[in-house]
């Protein structure tokens, strides 16, 4: 039973990371690619981290005391991903707009109008 739950988490994580990579190839410009890069990979990586935490806690509960290390380290990695991923995406998007990359197929661009005023 425990194995099946862990496999589901791993499967979901791999599926969303795959979608994130697909999005990087399919989307037209840097902003839409960042959408794929931040959302899909965050969710996928969180899911994989949860699987590892689950495995670590399970083995720890069954008596292998060393396994708690893996669970704690994965949890810290999870928090770090949640904090740094949106911040990094924000920095890339801002830098792209400042260096003059226009959003492809855009129907509205308030930031560009603001600069021209």
């Amino acid at each position: 039973m425990m194995w099946e739950i862990l496999y589901i988490f791993l499967g979901v994580g791999i599926f969303f990371n795959l979608l994130g990579s697909l999005g990087l190839l399919r989307f037209p410009d840097v902003y839409t690619r960042l959408h794929a890069g931040t959302k899909c990979t965050t969710f996928g990586s969180i899911s994989i981290c949860l699987a590892v935490i689950g495995y670590g806690l399970w083995k720890w509960y069954e008596g292998d005391k060393q396994m708690i290390t893996m669970a704690i380290h994965s949890f810290i990695a999870l928090v770090a991903i949640l904090l740094t991923n949106p911040t990094g995406a924000h920095a890339i998007a801002r830098a792209a707009h400042r260096s003059g990359v226009k959003p492809a197929k855009a129907v509205v661009d308030d930031l560009e109008e603001e600069k021209n005023d």
Partner: peptide, 19 residues
């Protein structure tokens, strides 16, 4: 994530920057 997954698979986007 499901929303972005849908857009990755279908390619249906209408992007823009709003304030």
């Amino acid at each position: 994530n499901f929303d972005v997954a849908y857009r990755v698979l279908t390619g249906r986007i209408r992007p823009g920057i709003v304030k």
